[in-house]
Design a protein around this nucleic acid. Structure first.
Lengths: 336, 336
DNA sequence: ATAAAATATTGACGCGAGTTAAAATTTATT
DNA sequence: AATAAATTTTAACTCGCGTCAATATTTTAT
């Protein structure tokens, strides 16, 4: 930078100011710098920049599993929000492993970002005390999956409305649904959905049936398919309507139905109605297209990002932890 | 680190050595450090670590669009490879925009990573001279999408085998296919696939039909669906067999067929056969399940990672640029 | 026990830009 | 034109750890 300052005819501190906020220096000086920049192709060193800075512009984004289209979509939105607000996002995926999540937390601690947007792999799976300690050192907003009392805020979707809307709809238009889920879900929202299903069925004075299928990991479609094949073969379904804990399981379920010659849909000649949750980008294109509940992706991500930005700018002033839940929107398609 | 050295009773340079390679110091000293680490929870500063280092362990991974399941999958594999080899991967998505790709390149230049795995958004879309300059400064391996002469190596899939296998198979089992694609594809491999289709049909002495549908961006399913609806309504298909340029378009095509009551499959009562390319994670679960060509994800990613690691360790010795293409594997399912 | 080899300690410098305070210069105001 | 206000320049310090050379201390081999 010293060299660049010399050749551009501007003092080093001014150059430094320029890179932090080009608007803070006088027009004629700025254009001189810009001209020199064109000519000499200098770029500041990331490590040196951040070494002795009080507040940098780096934001960490952590999701449990980036190959899941839901998280891919959320991550994409969050990155965009950060970029638009002048931050540099660093994206990490825990790959569904606690160890990886911990490693990422260590990396981030060392990166000392201005803030972090964290979707933990789960209250029961994550290393709670580690995350707690992390949040005490780095301004952090939790999203998607809540850990009570941890982080400065939580922003997510209201799993109860997901289920209640759909159960009500399915009940009003036909048989009340049974609930199809993983016995050991990778994502903790599944527990809340199961609870919601039970509560709502109870409220409607209906007998619940929960089908919990085997399988570990994040290959939900295959797990759903295998589970559905089993259920369909053994004919253990007590209802002709199935509500799946998430869309990816539902996609697997639909695939099994096709394989078994079970016709899915709303018309009279159909054997089964199947609904999902999450409105994954692929649900619109299944055969039949999947009836599901949609996250308010846009609201969740913009709210999470906004919360983090204000948190960053007011980190000294302590404020109460907030939890924000966005309601689901029922998306009626052809499968139920 | 000075403080930590004091309380742990070990000298600072030794602590420094410990963090760079715990195996390089004596057992008894190491365990002392580890004990102190437990007790005092010290972690080194990322910026300071990298500031005055000759070779760091950071690797940049850049993909054009992370919400595309193909890139999500490749990125996941690449990250794993890096982690397993002791590197810290930093993942970036260009979000399909040249400007974003350029910004990422700037960030990476400043990050001075040991190496970069880059999948450009495309020979025609990317800022070629910018990428070229970048590659002169940072050890870079290109993957997925080649830019002739740029980077130290290219690793990708052989688009020709994708198409040739499938065309041959479709031709042998029924009508030769027409080719369904985007007029202005977001991913440059589409051009190679189109060319391959033409060449192969010519070689077989068959009349090609290319259907190029409108639409911009990365929402391939919807683009495929709209395009298919148009084609099906206008009955412009000259063949009862459709080969789609990629799986996501095919998924949209299948969705349109379902909507129009067109039956897809291999049996006699079916109207159409549809095949895709890429073997996206969702293709197994469509109705009917999608016949497609599979990338050798594992080989591409491990080869790309390995190439980068050896490049990093031999950056001084100049070696010739190599191009490695992995063949596709035909995955016959029910749609064709 | 002694010599040789391997490792640890001491002390000091450097990385490259952020940051600050005082002095010098430019621009804006009266 | 004189004064006040806003920027820029100068000069120097800082950040935390990598790195290196000389020295001291282990460990291993003889």
């Amino acid at each position: 930078m010293q060299d660049f300052a010399k050749v551009s005819g501007i003092s080093r501190p001014t150059i430094s100011k320029f890179f932090n906020d080009p608007g803070s220096i006088r027009e004629n000086i700025r254009s001189k710098i810009e001209a020199a920049l064109e000519k000499y192709d200098y770029y500041p060193n990331f490590y040196a920049i951040n070494q002795n800075r009080q507040l940098n512009k780096n934001i960490g984004i952590v999701v449990p599993y980036l190959s899941d289209p839901f998280f891919a979509e959320i991550a994409r939105n969050l990155e965009r929000q950060c970029i638009n607000s002048g931050y540099t996002p660093f994206l990490f995926s825990s790959h569904g492993h606690k160890e990886q999540e911990n490693t990422i937390l260590d990396t981030l601690r060392s990166l000392k970002p201005a803030g972090v947007l964290l979707a933990p792999i789960g209250r029961r799976t994550s290393d709670k005390s580690k995350i707690e300690k992390f949040c005490n050192n780095v301004p952090t907003i939790l999203f998607d999956s809540n850990i009570e009392g941890v982080g400065s805020a939580f922003i997510g979707s209201d799993n109860f409305t997901f289920i209640s809307q759909t159960v009500t709809y399915l009940n009003n238009t036909g048989t009340p649904p049974c609930f199809f889920e993983m016995k050991n879900p990778a994502n903790p929202n599944a527990f809340r959905r199961r609870d919601a299903y039970l509560k709502i069925m109870q409220g409607l004075n209906l007998e619940p049936q929960i089908i919990s299928v085997d399988g570990e990991g994040w290959e939900f479609e295959e797990i759903g398919r295998q589970g559905a094949l089993k259920v369909l073969r053994e004919k253990t379904l007590k209802s002709d309507t199935v509500l799946c804990s998430n869309d990816r399981l539902a996609i697997g379920f639909l695939s099994a139905c096709q394989e078994m010659g079970v016709k899915v849909g709303k018309s009279k000649d159909c054997d089964l109605r199947v609904a999902g949750n999450d409105d994954s980008p692929y649900s619109k294109f299944t055969s039949p297209s999947l009836t599901t509940s949609s996250h308010d992706y846009e609201s969740v991500s913009s709210q999470a990002a906004e919360s983090l930005f204000t948190l960053i700018n007011n980190y000294d002033k302590a404020s109460k932890r907030t939890e924000t839940l966005f309601s689901a929107k029922l998306i009626v398609r052809n499968s139920a």
